[in-house]
Simulated scan of single mutants.
Amino acid sequence: MTETDCPVDVPCPDGRLLAGRLLLPDAEPAVAIVLHGATGVPRDYYARFARWVADTKQAAVLIYDYRDSGHSARGPVRAARATMGDWGVVDQNAALDFICHEFPDLPVEVIGHSLGGMFLPFHSQAGRVREMIAVGSGPAYWRRHPRGFLPQVLAFWFLAGPLLTRIMGYMPGRLLGMGTDLPANVYWQWRRWCTSRRFYRVDWGKTLPNPDPARVTCKVRLIGVLDDPMIPPPVVRDLAAFYPHADVRHQVIAPADAGVRAIGHLRVFSERCRAAWPLVIGTAV
C-alpha cells in the first residue's frame, strides 16, 4: 500500500464492515467516485482501472467487496447469509454514504458494473450524484440472452446451478466455470429475478424496499458491450425504465474500440481493454 492507495472499512447500518480501498490522486481530489462491482467479481479486479481513473480525473475512487465475499468475507461461503438485495441496497448504499461523508464538498459520481448499476434509486444519497455510469447493467431476463448462450443459461438457472447449490449449500461458481463461489441466498434471489419478466420488481416491497426513482435526476450513461452475452446492449437499454427522472444516454462499446477481438461481460475493466477506458468515463476525444 502507498499513501495514494489506502485500506478503509466501510460501515453498514447493521454493523457489518466492508473491506475497501480508497485510491487517491497525487493532488487534491476534484471529484469523489464509488465503483460498485459486479456479482462475484472481487474489488481488486477493478484496481488498475480505478487507479487510472484516480489519476486521469484527479479523483478519489472507492472500490470494495460486498459482504460475505472477497476481503469482506467472515468465514466459509457455505455459512454466508448475504442476499443479492443486501449487496445492491445495503452495501452499495453504505459505500455511497462513505464517499459522500469523506468528501462532503466534492461532486460525487458512481461507476457501476452489472449489479453495480441497478440500485441507485434505493440509495439515500442518490441526490448527491451528478453522474452515474452503468456498464453491462440491465434486467437480465433469461430468455433475452443471445441464442448461442442459452445452453449455459439453462444449465445455470434450471439444471446444474440449482442442483449443486442445494447439495453444496452455496453456488459453486468455480466448479461451473461461472466465476467465484456465491452464497446460496445470493444465487436464489438472483435466479428469481432472472427467471421473472419483472426482474427485481418481483421483490419490491417484499425482500427489497420500494425504490424512489425521483431521487435520481442526474446524468446516467448506460453502456452496453457489443459482444456481451450476459447483458447484451438491448437489455442494457431496458435499464432506462428504472431511471425515469434521469438524463439517460446510451452507448455501446465494441471490441474494436479496445483493440481486442472480444470483451464479453467482464473484460472492459481489464488491462487488456485499457484503450476503451476513456470511452467508459467519457474522456475520449
Rank of each mutant, 00 (worst) to 15 (best):
V53L: 10
A82P: 05
D65M: 12
H265K: 05
H145E: 05
F103H: 13
A275L: 14
D181E: 01
L226K: 09
V225S: 03
P183G: 09
A214S: 15
A254G: 04
R81C: 13
V89Y: 01
W204K: 05
V202K: 05
M1S: 09
M230P: 01
A258Q: 07
A155D: 14
P146V: 15
F149N: 13
C6L: 15
L154C: 09
D228T: 11
W190E: 04
V220C: 10
M84V: 11
P234N: 14
G127L: 04
D228V: 11
V252N: 02
P104K: 05
M230Y: 04
R143P: 10
G37K: 05
I133W: 02
L23S: 10
R267C: 10
K219H: 14
V225Q: 04
R221I: 14
C6M: 11
P11R: 09
A60M: 00
R78T: 14
Y46H: 04
L176V: 10
G37N: 12
P146E: 14
P172H: 04
R48Y: 13
I253K: 00
W193T: 09
D14F: 07
V153N: 09
P146I: 15
W87V: 09
Y141Q: 09
L23Q: 07
R51A: 15
L266V: 15
P42F: 09
V248G: 02
Q125E: 07
R43W: 07
L175D: 01
L150K: 12
H265C: 08
P121A: 02
V280A: 03
L115Y: 05
I111R: 00
L96P: 00
N210I: 08
V53R: 00
A214V: 06
P107A: 05
D65Y: 08
I223G: 04
I33L: 12
A82E: 07
Y141R: 11
T56K: 10
C273R: 06
L18R: 01
F149I: 11
T2F: 06
G85A: 13
L222P: 03
L35W: 01
L106V: 02
M230V: 15
V153L: 08
D181T: 06
A134I: 02
F199Y: 14
G224R: 06
A276N: 07
D247H: 14
F49P: 04
V248A: 08
I133H: 02
P213Q: 06
R198P: 02
P213D: 11
D91V: 11
A80T: 02
S196I: 12
A276K: 01
L182P: 00
V34E: 00
R16N: 12
R51C: 13
H250S: 08
Q189A: 03
L150T: 13
Y45G: 14
H113I: 13
A275Q: 14
V8I: 15
I281F: 04
L115H: 06
V34C: 01
